[in-house]
């Protein structure tokens, strides 16, 4: 089990597609840093020279990509991430079936071993890509700007008493960042595993790889049409929290997606006619 899992992980992380996905997601973080963060560092000096003129200087939280809802980078990230997350390895199950690799593996390992290893390799690779832009940008902004804990009276952030994880944000802001990175990791990881589920019935690689994005995008459109944006992953996964979301709902949906896709995949994996 351990052996096949390490093989799948190596296949997931050591390929050109993963390198490309990393390059694009890091590109978003770097472009954001150099266009929306780096030029404003001079105002820290102004804060020191003219005390009392500003409430607080720019800091690692206010400049972070996760809170920059005014530029296009955050919206772009949340449209591109589901595509990039499933790009490196989500279509690998279909390719394994088409190339005969699956038959080869199943003559050496059990279906459960291969299935579990494949599922978690897809989940981990997709989650890693999903958190890369936010994490890289947070590290860059922390390396440039001082750490100043957010104050409720400051009014710079869209985190209010009714928004998700608000107490965490004002008491332990680093844990707020960790909580959102973890939420993004699990949600996009689970979303990418939908490709595995759809690969049992569809043979077109582009469709299989893009299926997680299609689910995410259809939800985005449908919930916008019916004005229910608080239930839309495009909004509730964003750290800036433009809409008020219920944490129980968010965590419930994420868990249901993870468990649901695993059960569906496990059922079909058990009954799939490989040979």
């Amino acid at each position: 089990m351990k052996n096949i899992f390490s093989v799948e992980l190596r296949r997931a992380f050591d390929n050109k597609k993963m390198f490309t996905a990393w390059l694009i997601s890091l590109g978003i973080a770097f472009f954001h840093y150099f266009t929306c963060e780096f030029p404003y560092r001079i105002y820290i000096r102004d804060y020191l020279d003219y005390p009392g003129m500003f409430i607080l200087p720019h800091n690692s939280f206010s400049m972070w990509l996760g809170f920059d809802g005014a530029s296009f980078y955050l919206a772009l990230s949340y449209l591109v991430i589901p595509v990039l997350a499933s790009f490196p390895f989500a279509g690998s199950f279909l390719q394994d079936k088409k190339t005969g690799y699956l038959k080869n593996v199943l003559s050496r390992a059990t279906r459960i071993q291969y299935g579990v290893a494949k599922y978690f390799a897809v989940f981990i690779s997709a989650g890693t890509i999903a958190v890369t832009p936010l994490l890289a940008d947070f590290l860059l902004s922390s390396a440039t700007y001082p750490y100043i804990g957010p104050l409720p009276a400051e009014g710079c952030f869209g985190v209010y008493e009714t928004t998700m994880f608000h107490s965490l944000f004002y008491s332990m802001p680093y844990w707020y960042v960790v909580a959102f990175l973890a939420l993004n990791f699990v949600f996009f990881g689970a979303l990418a595993t939908l490709s595995l589920c759809v690969a049992f019935s569809v043979e077109r690689l582009f469709f299989v790889e893009l299926f997680p994005f299609l689910v995410y995008f259809i939800l985005y459109i449908a919930l916008n049409v019916f004005n229910l944006v608080q239930y839309c992953p495009f909004f509730f996964l964003r750290p800036d929290q433009g809409v008020e979301c219920n944490p129980v709902f968010v965590l419930g949906v994420t868990a249901a997606l993870l468990v649901g896709s695993f059960l569906f995949y496990a059922f079909h994996m058990k009954h799939e006619d490989v040979f």
Partner: peptide, 19 residues
């Protein structure tokens, strides 16, 4: 390039056009 990368390119182009 891979079709997925081209699709990502179109998303980027559209979002950048809005900005």
């Amino acid at each position: 390039f891979k079709p997925m990368i081209c699709f990502t390119g179109v998303i980027t182009l559209l979002v950048v056009s809005l900005f």
